[in-house]
């Protein structure tokens, strides 16, 4: 098994090395886009079962965002909804033979963590203004500003490390079990891995929503 911290190159596009995680992500992107397009290209109020399922998924995510942010979820749905759908799909990819979860590579959780980090401040600035947003770092006490700034970094760090650690460790355990016990014993762990993947996607998305909520003033940080 390759190291999750080692660089892997599937192929190169000019000087750009394309890793398996990137290629899998492209596949996931194509899959999500294709399914969405096929199901909703002729969307009507009396849609079919696939459209209805997608509507249920989107509305459930909206309800979760609305419950946490206490406001219309329309502005936050693309980021948070995509985050959840991508993570769920990416974490379930290992169920297919020969594929590995992009989130089990450190680059993907870091990239998502950075995007969430930037989004938190973007939404905070947009919602409360520069002064209001910067002022919230001084509350409840300006003396706590270093700790507040440190927590801004560490919580994102914990967010990405949690995702990466869970998915990577699960792959490691499966690899060890396959190595030691063959192909039958790891099956329950693979099923457990699917559950872990969904839970981690949910946790990542919910925490990102909570952080954004804290930035826009909907949630106490």
């Amino acid at each position: 098994m390759e190291s999750p911290f080692g660089a892997q190159v599937l192929f190169r596009v000019g000087p750009v090395p394309i890793s398996p995680a990137v290629a899998t992500t492209w596949g996931i992107m194509a899959l999500l886009t294709l399914v969405s397009w096929l199901a909703l290209r002729r969307a009507t109020p009396d849609g079919g079962p696939v459209q209805t399922a997608l509507e249920i998924v989107v509305e459930t995510i909206e309800d979760q965002i609305r419950a946490i942010l206490q406001r219309d979820p329309g502005r936050y749905l693309p980021l948070l909804g995509t985050l959840f759908l991508f993570l769920v799909t990416a974490n379930l990819v290992p169920a297919l033979p020969g594929l590995r979860a992009p989130t089990s590579r450190i680059e993907t959780p870091v990239a998502l963590g950075l995007i969430v980090f930037l989004s938190i401040h973007w939404f905070g600035l947009r919602e409360t203004g520069v002064a209001g947003y910067l002022g919230h770092f001084l509350r409840p006490n300006p003396l706590l500003l270093p700790l507040t700034l440190l927590s801004e970094i560490t919580r994102i760090l914990s967010l990405m490390v949690r995702l990466f650690g869970n998915m990577m460790s699960h792959e490691l355990i499966l690899a060890i079990l396959v190595y030691l016990a063959g192909f039958v014993l790891p099956v329950p762990f693979m099923v457990l891995g699917l559950l872990i993947g969904v839970i981690q996607a949910y946790i990542f998305t919910i925490l990102a929503t909570v952080y954004i909520g804290a930035a826009v003033g909907a949630v106490d940080s």
Binding site: A7, P17, I18, T108, A111
Partner: peptide
């Protein structure tokens, strides 16, 4: 090691 290309591509991909 962190593959910065992959990190950037994943961010762009997302």
């Amino acid at each position: 090691t962190i593959d910065w290309w992959t990190l950037g591509l994943q961010a762009v991909n997302f």
